[in-house]
Design a binder for these strands. Structure first.
Lengths: 205, 205
DNA sequence: GCCATTACAATGCGATCGCACTGTAATACG
DNA sequence: CGTATTACAGTGCGATCGCATTGTAATGGC
């Protein structure tokens, strides 16, 4: 009956505007008017797709989390056939990637983290990996150890947990500019070296 | 000449109000009026001690960072005579302490982290340990390894770096309620076990 | 005592906020 | 065709913001 538009495209555009604004000036600088300006639409349109500011920020966060997960899955797909150790490294590297889009997502997540302190509905941000991811990672660690002739130690799940916590922390450092992506990767690789017991590891400038 | 008051006491009171407000509702809910109310003083007094909102938040952040450092130093002083390994554990545990004050500081730091994304003057928050702390920690690791008959491996500084990154990440998880302090400590201890336990991959286990 | 100076208290102001509300162009369906 | 419905655009409102400004009580040095 009415005009038919692509809602998904509209929301995506608005969320992109939120990301850009939050990265530039923190979530406190995200206002209905500025989002509208940034997206090149009217304030009315923003209100049409989101009932409140909260809802808009929350959707932006949901999509950011989803995008980060997608980048991890993408790393898995890309490095899938290269063996468990390389795959493990590739997954973790996704959090400290120098890729511009990846940096934006991390920065936005960090910007929203401040709200998560008091707003439980924002609680997904910077959260430890979910069960599925941890199990998958633990499996990689086990496989990598067996591949090197070692034996599983029965605590691979905690090891995986540590890996993701470390990677998250390094990702935050990269997002805040405290470390270069290369430096972060090198630290991450050092940890994996120790974790798997192999002495081999090269630094990338 | 004029009425003489304790400036330090005044500022401390205002900063405490900022901490409380930010933890309750994020930094966006920190306003001059609410700080004044929370501290039980007038808005005029807040303006008298801080020229702008930014300056107030920044001082609150500086004092929070200082307080966290103090809690680490306190851990060092308390556990100083118990040997390098116990000391190492005690230091790192300071970031995941169940202590109410410690949790408040971590939560506030996290709340401010959102601003640090775009405001370089807030950049001290969640930063990696400084050179002094890293050197000190690296020394602890070296000493602990020697105490166990192991040999230093020449990369203790990176190991120390990893320890603090991990502890920070776990501290964030605790602050956000994703982990209990006990669970975080247990993860941290697991990492230290591995770190000090064995360096040889052939007979590891 | 006098007074310059400090330490506030209180109010005012322009800007901006989220959101409600109103108006209007477009279109699939009968 | 008409029309109900969608998809906006634009505006208005009350609240709130940071900060400037003004007023005043207190006090140590002369």
């Amino acid at each position: 009956m009415p005009k038919i538009v692509d809602h998904e495209e509209r929301r995506k555009r608005l969320v992109e505007a939120v990301w850009a604004l939050a990265v530039r000036g923190g979530t406190e600088k995200v206002t209905l008017r500025k989002v509208a300006d940034e997206a090149g639409v009217s304030m009315g349109q923003v209100q049409h797709y989101y009932p409140s500011m909260q809802a808009l920020i929350r959707d932006a966060l949901d999509r950011a989390v989803q995008a980060v997960n997608a980048s991890i899955e993408n790393a898995v797909r890309t490095a899938g056939a290269t063996g468990p150790e390389a795959l493990l490294r590739a997954c973790l590297h996704a959090l400290v990637s120098p890729d511009e889009e990846s940096m934006r997502l991390m920065r936005f997540s960090l910007a929203v983290a401040g709200r998560a302190v008091s707003d439980p509905t924002m609680a997904r941000v910077l959260a430890p990996g979910d069960d599925e991811l941890l199990s998958f990672t633990a499996g990689l660690i086990t496989a990598a150890r067996q591949e090197q002739g070692g034996e599983p130690r029965g605590e691979e799940r905690t090891d995986a947990d540590i890996c993701w916590s470390l990677a998250t922390s390094l990702g935050v450092d990269v997002a805040l500019g405290y470390r270069s992506p290369d430096a972060a990767r090198s630290v991450l690789d050092h940890h994996i070296d120790r974790l798997l017991g192999s002495g081999r590891h090269e630094t990338a400038g």
